[in-house]
């Protein structure tokens, strides 16, 4: 017999993972719903998932590859696509999970389930987009005859890190948005700025060369800076991840773990505020 005690003012501040696990079917169902709605119902379905990153890549390649003339170890297009693969996934998950609670307010007001399921479920459907860009990436590597480096085994780890980073930021935003609607406007802003303060279209060495060392450390507080560098290292080799990289990794976990605690703190009053 299940027993539940609700007591005002008394609750654990630690996220309830046991309960979360009990609702795993809801997690998969919501992920699958997003997938269905995103790909199966639009007329040109998957094409939309391809179009957006391709256009961004094209523009960045023209601006940074041609106009600015950024020099990279591998062909510039390949360099750019490898960064965009991870960034597209990150920004997709961040945007969707950041808005997820507000979008699901109909449910939140009418039924109980661990609210964390909503932002978490957004991480799955983005993998489809990621897979598409990675296919493009592989195509380009074949075209340019670039062999993957010996570190390619680590690539999935960096994808996993970017998943954790995007969820961390997304969970923070989804919870903050419920209480402060202003964060709805912050979200696109973060995505836009992030595209430029992350080494996607240019090598991180550029930033490190032109910035004093304290500023470079701040640069790597952006968790995606280290992740994208690491992902490129896993694909193309080069210098192994250094101290700066570990700043980013620590940030990923700080962001994610703190988001779980903050979410837990405000979870119960969400229905009163959305």
């Amino acid at each position: 017999m299940e027993k539940l005690i609700i007591e005002a003012g008394k609750k654990s501040i630690v996220p309830n993972f046991k309960e979360l696990f009990r609702y795993k079917d809801l997690f998969w169902t919501l992920s699958w719903r997003d997938f269905k709605v995103r790909y199966a119902q639009t007329t040109i379905g998957l094409l939309w998932a391809v179009l957006q990153p391709v256009v961004t890549i094209a523009i960045l390649s023209i601006v940074f590859g041609r106009f600015v003339g950024v020099e990279t170890d591998v062909p510039y297009l390949l360099y750019n696509v490898s960064g965009m693969a991870i960034w597209t996934y990150f920004s997709f998950v961040l945007s969707n999970s950041g808005n997820s609670i507000i979008s699901a307010q109909g449910m939140v007001k009418k039924i109980y389930f661990p609210r964390l399921i909503i932002p978490l479920s957004k991480a799955v459907v983005g993998l489809i987009d990621l897979a598409i860009v990675i296919l493009i990436l592989i195509g380009l590597m074949i075209y340019y005859r670039v062999m993957p480096s010996a570190n390619v085994w680590a690539a999935p780890l960096f994808i996993l890190l970017s998943m954790i980073a995007s969820l961390g930021a997304g969970i923070w935003l989804s919870a903050l948005t419920v209480r402060f609607r202003d964060f709805q406007h912050v979200l696109p802003f973060i995505v836009q700025i992030g595209l430029y303060v992350t080494p996607i279209a240019y090598p991180a060495e550029f930033a490190m060369k032109s910035l004093p060392s304290w500023a470079a450390q701040i640069y790597f507080l952006n968790p995606m800076a280290g992740i994208i560098q690491g992902f490129r290292w896993s694909l193309f080799g080069g210098s192994a991840p250094d101290g700066y990289f570990w700043i980013s990794v620590v940030m990923v976990f700080v962001l994610f773990i703190s988001s779980l605690f903050y979410f837990r703190k405000v979870e119960d009053e969400m229905a009163d505020f959305v």
Partner: peptide, 18 residues
Amino acid sequence: KILSQITRPTEGKIEING
């Protein structure tokens, strides 16, 4: 809403068996 855990009570205690 309180009994279905959608929102929390400000005061008091609830025990649910099942």
